[in-house]
Amino acid sequence: MKKENRERIEGFLDEMEESLSGSRRQKEDIRTEIESDLLDRIAAEMDAGDSEKDAVDLALQEMGSPHEIAHGIDGVVAPASSSRIETLRRLVSVGVLLWAIYLCLNVRPWSYGAEGAATLAAVLLFHVPVIIFAWPGIIWRKNWLFGLIPAGLAIGIAMGVGMMGVASNAEIVIPMTDDPGAIVEASAPASDGSMPRWGQWLLFGGILCSFLVILGAMQQSQQRRWVFGLTSLFFLGVESAYQWEELRFRQDWKEIREFAEGYRDRRGGFPNKEALLSGGPPLHNDSFLFSDGTDGYSLFWNRPLSGGFALVADSRERSIRVQD
């Protein structure tokens, strides 16, 4: 190829490459691809009888403005950083992922029942967007408004569903304990007209849900399936294990209650510790039964999934609590 024609092609490619954003490698790849196709086009035109100059003219004309090509490509290609930054982003993602898993496994045993599931979901909702953002190439530029509509719907649905079946403040049971080490999570009533605690949680969860929907709308459908599928699997895996554990605790507690109530009906008082241990039902776990033989009894049940935490139920209280 003549030098002047080669220079025109190089000039076109240089101009396009300079207008591109993204990493050096991305730019080089795009340049190589377009150059290869451009040379094919020129060769085809020359085979058809055009002079080299005419073929180059036609090929460059068909390509259009180098700035417009660069602008068009920038709009759809995920902006990539240098390989060092990408490695750093991957490390940050993995770090946040491991931290989220650690946190989930350590936070879940502190609460009980639906509240435990909500806590677990909150931890995931808070960390998954960070992981999606940090991992390179998952989030890419797209019309943000496209995601805002489903996000608005998500927040509405989250609030609506969350409010369904929520007890009024008068009905909320506040577990009482004298033990400062006891971890008691309960919905506190709004005494000063401010938003109740469950409302704050709903708002918090709704905002995180809507944010996640926005991010989901900006992902490839395949990536979205992976992210949401793995997150849901993790949630279901951890939560079902704890729900199973708590179900067994409730079964044990029910049997203890039936035994103690029957004992009281027969003998006029609750069984003492020895009577509970010797005559009571077999339990699923290495439990501690306490009873002073007069006004009540309680069951301490070490959580098999989390050493150091115990589920506690007491006949004088109206709730089950978790104790550290």
């Binding site: 795009i30 451009l38 259009g64 490509i73 709009g75 759809v76 290609v77 490839q220 459908s221 990536q223």
Partner: peptide, 17 residues
């Protein structure tokens, strides 16, 4: 269509997976 307009479309389809 113009050759130059093909690449953004291809890259978009690639990003969509």
């Amino acid at each position: 269509f113009k050759q130059g307009t093909l690449y953004p479309v291809l890259y978009r389809l690639e990003r969509e997976g």
